[in-house]
């Protein structure tokens, strides 16, 4: 009995290790590709370690060949502006919808959450009409990213907010604190974990978004996803610097994940369970 069990365990470990390799292989492939020259990538050394570690690929992706530095800056601006706005909008509306008492609050809450069921595709063409004049600015993406991520932010915040006892408001009220002070100095600090959960989810959505970014950006405000995808489409692609671009685009999310994997997993689970 015991022996049979351990055979099963060994098989399980073998299977898991194989899948582990399958999960990590593309990353290994990406890092090695970013250090090879095009000949190596196409020729004899597709899979192996680079014969010469060409860090110059990074320099050329960053500056001359590609414009990854610009793409990165734009992705950072768009993402952080979106996060700031979704957090503000999300917190304020969640507060008004969950903590305050008024007729119709349930209806408005449902109305906002409905937005999650609607794919962005459905709004594309009318959105171009609104955003076309903004495509030379980062707003062309910040605006739709914020709007489409408000529902999920409100949902994640609301679950947390309804668990805060109403005595908080009562006590604050007795102490003579106004509603805004109560919301922003008493409730907001308690909401930080939920805000982080929502922010990580939105961060990954926005950082990795392609469809809107393709449509609504012009060269000076290109984000990483579009920029890199265009690098690969160029007639004579320099695959080494493309690899470097991929690494630069992936590093922020990977670092975030490595630093707080538990938190990232929690966020994505919270974002998925929106049924």
């Amino acid at each position: 009995m015991k022996k049979k069990l351990s055979v099963g365990k060994i098989l399980a470990q073998i299977f898991l290790v194989i899948w582990l390799v399958v999960c990590l292989f593309p990353l290994y492939w990406m890092f090695t590709m970013s250090l090879k020259d095009t000949n190596e990538i196409f020729g004899g050394n597709v899979v192996g370690l680079p014969t010469q570690w060409l860090w110059s690929n990074y320099a050329s992706a960053w500056g001359s060949g590609g414009k990854v530095s610009t793409y990165l800056l734009n992705s950072v601006i768009d993402t952080f502006a979106t996060l700031l706005l979704t957090s503000t909008f999300g917190f304020m509306s969640a507060y008004g919808l969950l903590r305050m008492r008024w007729k119709g609050q349930k209806v408005v809450f449902t109305y906002l959450l409905m937005g999650m069921m609607i794919p962005m595709h459905a709004a594309l063409y009318p959105l171009t009409e609104i955003l076309l004049t903004l495509t030379k600015t980062n707003w062309a993406l910040i605006i739709p990213y914020t709007a489409f991520n408000i529902p999920i932010t409100v949902l994640i915040l609301s679950g947390f907010m309804s668990n805060i006892p109403y005595e908080m408001e009562e006590a604050a009220c007795i102490d003579g604190s106004g509603i805004y002070r109560t919301a922003f100095t008493i409730i907001l600090p308690m909401m930080v974990p939920a805000l982080i959960t929502a922010a990580i989810f939105v961060f990954l959505q926005v950082w990795n978004e392609l469809l809107l970014a393709t449509l609504f950006t012009t060269t000076p405000v290109r984000t990483l996803t579009v920029g890199i995808q265009q690098m690969s489409g160029q007639y004579q692609t320099d695959y080494g610097s493309m690899g470097a671009g991929l690494v630069i685009a992936t590093l922020p999310t990977l670092v975030l994940y490595m630093c707080m994997s538990g938190q990232v997993q929690k966020s994505l689970v919270a974002g998925a369970v929106k049924g």
């Binding site: 909008f89 999300g90 304020m92 509306s93 507060y95 008004g96 919808l97 305050m100 408005v108 109305y111 906002l112 937005g115 609607i118 459905a122 709004a123 594309l124 063409y125 009318p126 959105l127 009409e129 609104i130 605006i143 739709p144 914020t146 709007a147 489409f148 408000i150 529902p151 409100v154 919301a183």
Partner: peptide, 20 residues
């Protein structure tokens, strides 16, 4: 608290869908 979000959301998400 609520109105800015609702208006913004309506203008960018809901109205375009009906336009589509």
């Amino acid at each position: 608290f609520v109105l800015p979000t609702v208006l913004f959301f309506t203008y960018i998400v809901i109205v375009p869908i009906f336009k589509t």
